[in-house]
């Protein structure tokens, strides 16, 4: 499972980087989205993927019995997903406004203030 996830993360990073380096502003947004997904999945995988080990103390016991999966990375990913959701929403609006103001989706054309 970990190996499969590693391959998926690699593909996501590759695709994300490719899209970010394109000149189209829409592809930039999609690329940033893919990169965020890759990061989230990486954190998830780093928390050791395991099955059938809910981190809940059984009734009557004083502490967890191994094997159990670590809930912290999932909490981290959840927070990161919420943040990236907000950022993506903002980015979409920004791109729409930028397109309306500049009339182009070419990143190389956004240099009216460069000297």
């Amino acid at each position: 499972m970990t190996a499969l996830l590693a391959v998926v993360i690699g593909i996501l990073y590759g695709a994300g980087l490719y899209l970010v380096m394109r000149r189209s502003i829409v592809k930039l947004v999609l690329g940033l989205g893919l990169l965020t997904h890759a990061a989230n999945l990486l954190i998830f995988t780093m928390g050791r993927v395991s099955r059938d080990g809910a981190p809940i103390v059984p009734p009557g016991a004083a502490e967890l019995t191994a094997p159990y999966s670590d809930p912290v990375p999932q909490a981290l990913v959840l927070t990161a997903i919420v943040i990236s959701f907000g950022v993506q929403a903002f980015l979409l609006v920004l791109v729409k406004l930028a397109h309306r103001a500049t009339g182009t989706d070419d990143l190389d054309a956004l240099r009216s203030t460069d000297q």
């Binding site: 970010v20 965020t36 950022v87 980015l91 920004l94 103001a101 500049t102 009216s112 203030t113």
Partner: peptide, 17 residues
């Protein structure tokens, strides 16, 4: 403003990376 939006695209992209 147009200049602001252009600046913001660059700023947001690099900071998100």
């Amino acid at each position: 403003e147009r200049a602001q939006l252009e600046g913001a695209v660059k700023y947001v992209t690099l900071n998100l990376l």
